[in-house]
Simulated scan of single mutants.
Amino acid sequence: MKHSNASNSLSGEAARNELYALLHRSLPRKQAIERVVQIGANYLNLDHGHITSIDEAENQWEVIGSTDSPDGPYPDGLTAKLSDSYCRRTFQQSSPLALHDAGNQGWEDDHAYQLHQLDTYLGIRINAFGEPYGTICFVESEAREDPFSEVEQIFIELAGQILQKVLEETHHEKDLANRDRLISVLNRVLRHNLRNDLNVVHGNAQLLIEQTSGDEAKLASNIESKTTGLISLAEKARKLENLTRSVPVARPMDIVPIVSQTVSDVCDDHPTVNCSLDTPEQAISFAAPQLADALSELLENAAKHAGKEPAIDVAVHRNSDQITVQIEDDGPGLPPDERRILSGESEQPLSHGSGLGLALVYWILTNLDAEIDVATASSGTTVEVHLQRAESIPSPGN
Rank of each mutant, 00 (worst) to 15 (best):
D337N: 14
G333A: 07
G357F: 01
G344F: 02
V325R: 06
G353R: 11
D321P: 02
L334E: 14
I327Q: 12
P336V: 10
L360N: 11
S346E: 15
A359T: 13
V361N: 06
P335M: 09
V325K: 04
I323H: 02
R339T: 09
G333H: 04
S346K: 14
T324Y: 00
R339F: 02
L358W: 09
P332R: 07
G355T: 06
L358V: 07
L358S: 08
G333S: 10
L334K: 01
G333M: 05
E328D: 14
S343R: 13
S346Y: 04
D330A: 11
L342W: 10
Q322R: 13
D321G: 07
L342G: 11
S354V: 06
E338T: 00
I323Q: 03
G353M: 13
R339A: 14
T324A: 06
D337I: 04
L334Y: 03
D321C: 00
G357S: 12
G355M: 07
I323M: 00
G353I: 13
G331A: 11
L342N: 02
V325N: 10
S351P: 01
E347P: 00
E347I: 15
L360G: 04
E345P: 01
I341H: 06
V325T: 15
L342Y: 12
V325P: 04
S346I: 09
P335K: 14
P336L: 11
L350Y: 04
S351L: 11
E338H: 02
L356M: 15
D329P: 04
I341R: 05
G357C: 03
G353Q: 13
P332L: 06
I327Y: 09
D337A: 14
D329F: 05
Q326T: 09
Y362M: 05
I327W: 12
L342I: 08
L360C: 05
Y362P: 02
I341Y: 08
G331V: 05
L342Q: 08
T324W: 00
P349S: 09
L360F: 07
L342T: 13
E338V: 00
G344V: 09
P335G: 12
D330F: 03
V325H: 10
D321R: 12
R340F: 01
Q348K: 09
T324P: 00
D337G: 00
D329T: 06
E347M: 11
V361S: 02
Q326R: 08
I341V: 15
G344M: 08
S343L: 07
R340M: 10
A359Q: 15
G344I: 04
E338N: 08
L360W: 01
V361C: 03
Q348G: 08
E345R: 12
D337Y: 08
A359L: 11
P335F: 03
E345Y: 04
Q322T: 13
R340S: 15
D321H: 11
Q326V: 13
I341A: 11
V361W: 00
S354N: 14
R339W: 00
G357L: 01
D321F: 03
I323T: 07
I327H: 04
S351V: 11
E338C: 02
E338K: 07
S351F: 01
G357P: 10
Q326P: 00
G353E: 13
T324H: 02
R340Q: 11
R339L: 08
G357K: 03
D321M: 08
L356Q: 14
G331C: 01
L350E: 11
A359F: 15
L342C: 14
V325F: 01
P349V: 08
V361P: 04
P335Y: 04
S354P: 10
E345F: 07
Q348H: 09
I341M: 05
